[in-house]
Design a protein around this nucleic acid. Structure first.
Lengths: 115, 115
DNA sequence: ACCTATTTGTCCGTATGTATG
DNA sequence: CCATACATACGGACAAATAGG
């Protein structure tokens, strides 16, 4: 599983990491039970600070996709693929419907952001 | 609204801040529309780093209780009291029921933590 | 329209603590 | 006891949005 970040992007780097891992789980590139690289390790690979990776891991834990344990690492939880692809499907339907209704991307993003 | 933190507590300082503000909203000590002190300010008052306060504010924002805007500050959102007190009531019922069932505090905490 | 101060947002580096193996 | 790896906190830096003069 390859993670990359664009430091000049408007979306924060930790969010980019979250999105890519989510996507990896949804597509099956990352499987349930898989162990992600240690935060320090991934951080060095992609050229960011360890905290940036830990923040991403923390968000995924809060979303229920990741199990974090000190000394052990970050493991993808059972049921994560379903969860991740559920979100994928819902997001897909939402975007499709928004497009059909003539709702602009900006409007949609603003709407979601205000929630 | 008075916030204090115990640096020797087992619960993180940012979590202590979150709990106290939640409680303040639930009891009415903090009202909807009220502006919390700037992170830097509150941090100085209670003797923690600004980032620790910002982390607490961020959690409250994620929970839907706070509206954070750069340059403006942290404002309690409308409906926060209902939300906060809903959680209060549910927690209260849970604790009562657990006690009635003979479930120890440790068991209950562990149960919740694993979710 | 411009400048300045305020305040949150992100990221970095460092330090220390704590659970796991 | 020791290495690993997440967890929390601090401090500093810069960016970006907001408000006010």
């Amino acid at each position: 599983m390859l993670v990359t970040v664009d430091e000049d992007s408007a979306t924060p780097m930790y969010a980019q990491i979250v999105t890519q891992i989510r996507h990896g789980v949804a597509t099956g590139a990352i499987k349930e039970g898989d162990r992600l690289p240690a935060a320090k390790e991934l951080a060095e690979q992609i050229g960011v600070n360890m905290h940036t990776v830990l923040r991403a891991y923390g968000e995924l834990r809060d979303a229920g996709l990741l199990q974090l344990r000190r000394g052990r690492g970050a493991i993808i939880r059972q049921g994560s693929k379903t969860k991740a692809s559920q979100v994928h499907r819902m997001a897909d339907r939402l975007v499709t419907e928004a497009k059909r209704q003539g709702v602009s991307k900006e409007e949609l993003m603003g709407l979601i952001e205000r929630m």
